[in-house]
Design a protein around this nucleic acid. Structure first.
Length: 500
RNA sequence: GAGCCGGUAGCUCAGUGGUAGAGCAACGGACUUUUAAUCCGUGGGUCGAGGGUUCGAAUCCCUCCCGGCUCACCA
C-alpha cells in the first residue's frame, strides 16, 4: 500500500500555514514569486566582497536566499546566501515607500533578487543598499538557518538522520557539510585532470553484467525483461578495463559506481565510487610512483596543502611513501614469522595467538590479510605501500618471481586505512585460468565471495594483454581521509538509508 | 545480525509516575547603519508507533519502526 500523499497545503503546521498566507498575499498583489523565470544578476555574492574596491558606490544586481533577517523598524538588514557566499543587504522605509511593507512577507529561505549600490556600513560590513527587490521564489516550509556570528553558529541542524535524509537542508545550513561534500567532488575533478594530463582515456563500462567479477563481493541481482535473464550489478571495473587494454587503449581509467550487496556501516555504503586505472608497460613500482604523484597533486590542488591531520597524526603527501613487505610488517607488529603461515594449520594457530578468529572458509592468504587488518593496519598512519600479498586472495595479480606464494600487489595505507590497491596485472591466460579454477574451488567450498570464473574474460586474455600496472582507489574512503571524517555517509550526498 | 545509546514545538534540547517546558525560529507591537540586533507581548505538541501496568504514563513494562556508535559481516 502506498502512503497517502501529503500536501503542504493540508498540513496543520502553523509555520507552513503562515507562509502560505504570505504567498497568497503576494499573489493577490500580482507578485507571485513562482511566476518568476529569470533574474539578471551582475555579480555573485562573493564577487561583491572580492571586488569591493571597484564596486563601491556602483549599482549592482544580486540574488540569493534570505539566510538572516534583521528588521529594525524603518530600516531592515538581511543576509543573502548563494553558492559563492553571503552578503548583507540594507533597506530604508522612506526610500521603499509602500513596498517596504512587503518585507513582512519575507521568510528565511525565500529567494530574493535585489538591485542597489554597494557600500560599507559604519561597522565596516560590505552591504548592498537596496533600491529595488523582487521575491524570486518562496520557501513554504521553515528553513532551519542557524544564527551565526563569524564561525560560530547556534541551533544548527544536528540530527544526523535528518541531515542525511534531507541533505539539501544540511547543505544549506551546515557550512562544514557543504565544504566536505564539495571537496569530494573537487577531489574527483582533480583526479580526472591529473590522469587526463598523463594521457589516460576515461571510459565507461557496463554496470549490468552477466557475471559481476573483478573483486570478492556479493553482487546485487536484477532482471532484464526482454532478454529474460538475470544480470548482476558490477562489483568492480577491472575486467572490462583490461579488455580495453587488450583492445589497444594503453592508458585507461574509469571513475564509476560499483555495488556490493553487503552490510552498511560507517565505512560501507552499498553503492560507492571506484577509480580504476590501467597503464600498459608499467609495473607495480610505476604505480607506486603514480599514487605518490597523484596524492601530492590533488591534495595541493583541492586543499592548497599536502599536509593533513587526523586524530592527532600529521601526514605530508609531498613526501615519498614508506614501502614495506606485508610479511615483514606482520612480523614487525606481531612477532609472527612468514614460516608461521606455511600451512593452513600453522596459520590458524598463528592467527589464534594474536586473537583472530578464523572461519572455515579462510585460506592462508585470507588469514594473512586478517592479521594485516587487525594487527598491522592501525600502525600504518604515515602513507605506506604494503606489498607482497598472498596469491590466493590476489587472483588477478602476477606472482612474485622469487616467491610464488605471493603476488606483485600492494595496498596503500594512510591514517591506518586502506585507500589504494594495485597490481602488476596477471596477463598469462593459462595461469589466469588456473587462478579462476582455484577461486571456483573456494566458491564450491562455501565462499560466496570468491572471484567468479569469467570465461569471456579469459578468451580476451588469450588474444594478448600487454604487461600492465593497475590501480584501484575507493573515492569515498579517499574523500573521508582528506576531509577528516570517520563516516562514509559524510562524503556521499545521499547515503543509503532505510525507508523512513 | 548482536550489544549499547537515542527519537519531546520548525531547530537545539531540558523534563525518571501528578496540569508538557526553555532558548532560538514564528506571530503582534516599539525601534532608520543592524549583525547571535534589542525590548514588550502572544500562539505553537499524535512526547517515534502500537499495546500493557496504574486513579493517573513523555516517564514503568512489552512489541515494532527509524537513527547513531561499537562489534560481526565487508580485502
Amino acid at each position: 500500500m502506498q502512503e497517502p500523499i501529503h500536501h503542504a497545503l493540508e498540513e496543520e503546521n502553523q509555520l507552513v500555514q503562515i507562509r502560505l498566507q504570505k504567498l497568497q498575499r503576494l499573489r493577490e498583489l500580482g507578485l507571485d514569486p513562482f511566476a518568476i523565470e529569470r533574474y539578471d544578476i551582475t555579480h555573485t555574492l562573493h564577487e561583491i566582497h572580492e571586488k569591493y574596491e571597484q564596486l563601491e558606490g556602483q549599482t549592482v544586481s544580486v540574488a540569493g536566499r534570505i539566510a538572516a533577517l534583521r528588521k529594525m523598524g524603518k530600516a531592515t538588514f538581511a543576509d543573502l546566501m548563494d553558492a559563492t557566499g553571503r552578503l548583507q543587504i540594507y533597506l530604508k522605509a522612506d526610500e521603499q515607500g509602500e513596498k517596504y511593507d512587503l518585507i513582512d512577507l519575507w521568510d528565511l529561505g525565500d529567494y530574493l533578487g535585489v538591485q542597489g549600490f554597494v557600500f560599507k556600513t559604519r561597522t565596516g560590513e560590505i552591504t548592498v543598499h537596496v533600491q529595488a527587490f523582487t521575491m524570486l521564489a518562496k520557501a513554504i516550509r521553515p528553513v532551519p538557518f542557524p544564527k551565526e556570528k563569524g564561525e560560530q553558529r547556534w541551533y544548527e541542524l544536528h540530527d544526523v538522520e535528518q541531515r542525511y535524509r534531507q541533505r539539501y537542508l544540511d547543505l544549506l545550513v551546515n557550512p562544514d557539510s557543504r565544504r566536505r561534500l564539495i571537496a569530494r567532488c573537487q577531489i574527483v575533478r582533480a583526479i580526472r585532470r591529473f590522469l587526463d594530463e598523463r594521457g589516460f582515456l576515461e571510459v565507461e563500462t557496463p554496470v549490468l553484467q552477466p557475471l559481476a567479477g573483478g573483486a570478492a563481493a556479493r553482487p546485487f541481482v536484477t532482471y532484464h525483461n526482454a532478454l529474460e535473464r538475470e544480470f548482476q550489478l558490477r562489483i568492480a571495473l577491472e575486467l572490462h578495463l583490461k579488455r580495453l587494454l587488450i583492445g589497444g587503449i594503453d592508458r585507461v581509467y574509469e571513475i564509476g559506481r560499483v555495488f556490493r550487496n553487503e552490510g552498511i556501516s560507517t565505512r560501507h555504503n552499498p553503492e560507492f565510487t571506484m577509480l580504476e586505472l590501467y597503464q600498459a608497460y608499467a609495473n607495480l613500482e610505476d604505480i607506486m610512483a603514480l599514487v605518490e604523484d597523484l596524492m601530492r597533486t590533488i591534495t595541493q590542488q583541492v586543499f592548497g596543502t599536502t599536509v593533513f591531520e587526523m586524530h592527532g597524526v600529521r601526514v605530508d603527501f609531498s613526501q615519498p611513501w614508506q614501502r614495506v613487505r606485508l610479511m615483514d610488517a606482520i612480523h614487525h607488529y606481531t612477532g609472527l614469522a612468514e614460516a608461521d603461515f606455511e600451512t593452513l594449520e600453522s596459520a590458524i594457530r598463528a592467527a589464534d595467538k594474536v586473537g583472530i578468529h578464523v572461519e572455515r572458509k579462510d585460506t592462508i592468504g585470507g588469514i594473512i590479510e586478517k592479521v594485516l587488518e587487525k594487527c598491522v593496519a592501525e600502525h600504518l598512519q604515515q602513507p605506506t605501500f604494503v606489498y607482497g600479498f598472498p596469491i590466493d586472495t590476489s587472483p588477478l595479480a602476477k606472482r612474485e618471481p622469487n616467491n610464488p606464494r605471493f603476488t606483485r600487489r600492494f595496498e596503500g595505507y594512510v591514517f591506518g586505512k586502506e585507500i589504494a590497491n594495485a597490481f602488476s596485472e596477471l596477463n598469462d591466460p593459462l595461469e589466469q585460468r588456473a587462478r579462476f579454477e582455484q577461486q571456483l574451488r573456494l566458491r564450491q567450498a562455501g565462499d560466496e565471495e570468491a572471484h567468479p570464473f569469467d570465461e569471456d574474460f579469459l578468451v580476451a586474455l588469450e588474444y594478448g594483454m600487454p604487461p600492465a600496472g593497475g590501480l584501484g582507489i575507493g573515492i569515498d574512503r579517499l574523500a573521508m581521509i582528506l576531509t577528516g571524517t570517520d563516516s562514509i555517509r559524510e562524503v556521499i550526498f545521499f547515503p543509503q538509508m532505510r525507508e523512513g
